[in-house]
Design a protein around this nucleic acid. Structure first.
Length: 503
RNA sequence: UCCCCGAUAGCUCAACCGGUAGAGCGAGCGGCUGUUAACCGCUAGGUUGUAGGUUCGAGCCCUACUCGGGGAGCCA
């Protein structure tokens, strides 16, 4: 079967003045009696198709007038540039053919709740926002592969069924593997280390599974992670690699998906500043900031701004309510009622932030050296910076057994997290790996892990051990940060969350 | 596992002190030759999450449960 469309919407700019045929779905339509405006999407973009009475057969005009949202159709017409149209081009329709009629499409052009949209995920894809995010995700993944492929890295596919524990036993999904318990991978890193001793620079890229009982906007039980691993590298080398890598991804999205970012409301100006070097803080410095006056002031200022915001919202609501008590035309009342709903939703969100602010301030102030940084602590640090922040040298006891101890300060590990700016939080975690056989063995025992299971991993330290390290970047968190999407469940096609799989 | 919030029309939300449940969008019909989540008129659409309780009377108060949202811990 040949493509029924002669032309895709993204090609319209090269076809001005020509007659073309488009095939797509009816995204929205407006009618003005003798002229109709059909917004059609075809996967490559949106196009306004203008249907004038008399320019098409009367029965076709009538059929289009009653066509439901998301009906599929093919339209033929003349391409012309018009500032008033989405995308700047429109089609003056001369012929149209309905392919699949639709009645009662559930997702309307008005707002919907998260749960409703998730239950209609298979249809939600068609919405503008999801379409934009999907295209950004595509670019992010392509940029990830290109960066490593162009810089001498070899792709290694690490297993999804694993016999080893990377992070924490409790966060693993167990599967019955012909009667034997195995686990779904939570990192490819350990396997990757063995590959790094062969190829030097390697990376793995695939789905990762974590059974953490986390119900937050930055958690999924199944997510995609890319992990490079490099032989003969130190912590500074890793930080440099990570900042070049992240900067490259952002630059690619800015180059390939600018209009999507605009539609999504991303902060393009701020993304353009994402160039090396990023900020560097040690964990100890981060703790000093969190427990110091700077954070007290910062949180107080934030609270003040939130309260202002709340006051403004309340004032707006009161004013609108006052207006409603007067005598008004019905349409005016309705309009005010709609505005009230929006203001109340904003107010509720602001109230939640106000409620959380003191809790987070308290958590930060009460932070003691030795704990891992909490989500809210990361948020505070990242909110204080306009570029990503590396936090390095965490207490080794709070970190995984494979991380190398800093020989200059045995209390800390040679590791780092990368926090995306403006409150997005952690998108990368990485470290230099412990390359001393006896130290690693001791840590494995200390964690209560079985050294026999890790015999092969210990072998890597017996035969030509070298300093090496790597990191993992979460794809969905990166996409969420770049697209300014609040929840990472919107950044993966079919999200799997704690206790919740929709379709 | 813990803390906070919520559940009312297909969807998003109103309903003052407890007194017969209302809008917008969507659907259907009609009007309008440049609309931008178009607009205007009409029509249809409800066992207020479930089970109890208090009351002359419960969407509203009380108890339990179910489901959903946000956050903590943990993490990419």
């Amino acid at each position: 079967m040949t493509n029924q469309a002669g032309t895709y919407i993204e090609q319209l700019k090269d076809n001005v003045g020509k007659q073309v045929k488009l095939a797509g779905w009816l995204y929205n339509s407006r009618s003005s009696g003798k002229v109709q405006f059909l917004i059609i999407r075809d996967g490559t973009g949106l196009c306004q198709c203008v249907v004038e009475k008399g320019k098409v057969p009367d029965d076709v005009f009538e059929q289009l007038r009653h066509l439901g949202q998301e009906s599929s159709l093919a339209v033929t017409g003349l391409v012309r540039a018009d500032e008033r149209s989405v995308g700047g081009y429109e089609l003056a329709v001369t012929a149209a053919e309905v392919i699949g009629r639709t009645e009662g499409y559930p997702i309307t052009p008005k707002s919907h709740g998260v749960d409703f949209l998730m239950r209609h995920r298979h249809l939600h894809f068609r919405s503008q926002r999801q379409w934009c995010i999907g295209r950004v995700r595509h670019t992010v993944i392509d940029a990830i592969r290109r960066f490593f492929n162009d810089n001498g890295y070899v792709l290694i596919d690490t297993p999804i069924f694993t016999t080893i524990v990377g992070e924490d036993q409790t966060s693993l999904f167990e599967v019955d593997y012909f009667g034997e318990p195995l686990h779904l991978t939570q990192t490819g890193q350990l396997y990757l280390e063995s590959a790094a001793m062969s190829f030097g620079r390697v990376y793995c890229f695939g789905p990762t599974f974590r059974a953490e009982k986390s119900k937050t906007r930055r958690h999924l039980t199944e997510f995609w992670m890319v992990e490079p691993e490099v032989a003969f590298i130190d912590l500074d080398g890793l930080l440099e690699l990570a900042e070049n890598f992240v900067s490259y991804i952002v630059a690619r999205v800015l180059a390939d998906n600018r209009s999507e970012l605009e539609t999504l409301g991303s902060d393009i100006e701020s993304l353009e500043k994402m160039t090396p070097p990023f900020y560097r803080l040690t964990y100890t410095e981060a703790v000093e900031i969190l427990t110091g006056q700077r954070t007290v002031d910062f949180m107080a200022e934030q609270l003040r701004q939130l309260r202002d915001q709340r006051q403004r919202a309340k004032g707006g609501i009161a004013e609108l309510e006052q207006q409603l008590t007067g005598s008004l035309k019905q349409w005016k009342r309705d309009k005010i009622a709609a505005e009230l709903i929006e203001l109340r939703a904003d107010l509720a969100e602001t109230n939640t932030k106000i409620e959380n602010n003191p809790k987070h301030a308290e958590l930060a102030a009460g932070f003691r050296w030795g704990k891992d940084l909490g989500g809210s602590d990361e948020t505070i640090i990242s909110q204080m910076h306009d570029k990503p922040v590396f936090v390095t040298h965490y207490p080794k006891d709070a970190k995984a057994f494979y991380m190398k101890t800093d020989r200059a300060d045995e209390k800390v590990a040679l590791n780092f997290d990368l926090l995306a700016p403006a409150g997005f939080g952690e998108i990368i975690g990485g470290s230099v790996r412990e390359d001393d056989h006896d130290r690693l063995l001791a840590r494995i025992k200390q964690e209560g892990l079985n050294p026999e299971t890790y015999a092969w991993y210990l072998d890597l330290r017996k035969y030509g051990s070298v300093p090496h390290g790597g990191f993992g970047l979460g794809v969905e968190r990166t996409v969420a940060w770049i697209t300014a999407e609040k929840h990472i469940r919107q950044c993966i096609p079919f999200p799997r969350m704690m206790d919740k799989v929709y379709i």
